[in-house]
Design a protein around this nucleic acid. Structure first.
Lengths: 212, 212
DNA sequence: TAGATTGTTAATCGATTAACAATC
DNA sequence: TAGATTGTTAATCGATTAACAATC
């Protein structure tokens, strides 16, 4: 299968979500492309394109088998091949992420949570205890960790990222409000709250203007 | 000014971020389009298009004035016209959001935090105390709240959304892992962790395959 | 069968990039 | 002046949607 485009990858977890609930709540065994696209606001043709891209085929007049969709997405996104990750920063956000059950269901295994605040060290977070930063190298080496989740203050993010990259981490999921400078081989995904905030507030201001 | 496209709106906060730091860290008064695009990974031409769209003009051979960029983005995104918002769900994620200083700086004013867990009621979170859900209608009415931030469990999200919409809320920033059914006039932005997760794990699996 | 729905190619749309003149 | 950089139109690219034949 050729590599999937980014936009397709972003829709797959949402299809997965919806189909999971369709099975659980309504006991549906099949779903049509239009039904599947509706909650995401996407055209039925686009759904068919996406499903074709991950090798799921439907049946005219019937639709797509729910279980087949789930299995294909699981395989494509690697939900069944756990990826070990370390989480740096055990504040509220880090704790929320470490406790999120969706991670384990989707193949992410948080093997260590780290923080430098003595008050937080030893606290249980999502199944593991918070460790001091100097325990990081051993954990990364032991589990051959490539992925780090960054929930530290912006002021610390670059230094932590540099350390992680030095230890062999090559993928960073960054929740700190800052843009990291990294070598080209390192993949960074930034989750910037201010981006979502911009969208919702712009939407409000725009309607205020048109109301007036 | 004509409405901005969504993709532009998503880049503006990131430009803002970068220019803020440029002033603070390096004391730069001007910045070129190529310099501004680099940390975001966007072409210099695209930066010029974006800045033109928000009415910022540069000077050949010199660049754009940093302060002018900040002012224009502030105005366009409404950072200086505070939007009142309620936050529902005072778990770790809700607490993290309520305490995020970036909200106030960007025109979001959290006027109430709500939760149904008696253990959480009365706790201070980001400057305000957690209130029980039955206090919600009065707060929404008093501040004429249009925006709600949802950090409740997925199982409660739809019911809470319905209640909010009934109270006059027409914009929902949804952090619950579920797709909400809402009337057409209501704007919803979903922040789904599983979308970001899909991207990072797919990136890892893809490189694993090419390594092998 | 008739009708619903898939599968796929072609057309459209929108966003990004290229090209290049204008300008300081 | 020469060179760097903007501003803007045109070209390209990629994603979405339309059209429609295939199929159960």
């Amino acid at each position: 299968m050729k590599p999937l485009r980014r936009c397709v990858i972003e829709r797959l977890p949402r299809y997965y979500h919806f189909v999971e609930r369709l099975i659980a709540d309504e006991g549906q065994a099949t779903v049509s492309s239009s039904r599947l696209g509706e909650p995401l606001g996407v055209d039925d043709t686009l759904v068919r394109h996406d499903l074709a891209a991950i090798g799921v085929r439907g049946q005219p007049k019937v639709g797509y088998r729910c279980q087949e969709i789930l299995d294909a997405i699981r395989t494509v996104l690697g939900y069944d091949r756990p990826v070990p990750a370390v989480l740096i920063g055990a504040g509220h956000l880090g704790t929320a992420l470490a406790s999120y059950p969706g991670f384990a269901e989707r193949g992410l295994s948080v093997v260590g949570v780290f923080d430098n605040d003595p008050a937080r060290i030893g606290q249980p977070t999502g199944g593991v205890r918070v460790q001091p930063a100097d325990a990081l190298p051993a954990v990364v080496a032991e589990h051959q960790v490539r992925l780090a989740i960054l929930t530290v203050p912006a002021s610390a993010a670059q230094a932590v990222a540099d350390q992680l990259i030095g230890l062999g981490v090559d993928t960073i999921w960054n929740f700190s409000p800052c843009t990291l400078a990294v070598p080209e081989r390192v993949v960074v995904r930034n989750e910037l709250l201010s981006v979502g905030l911009a969208e919702v507030t712009y939407a409000i201001h725009k309607r205020e203007r048109s109301d007036a």
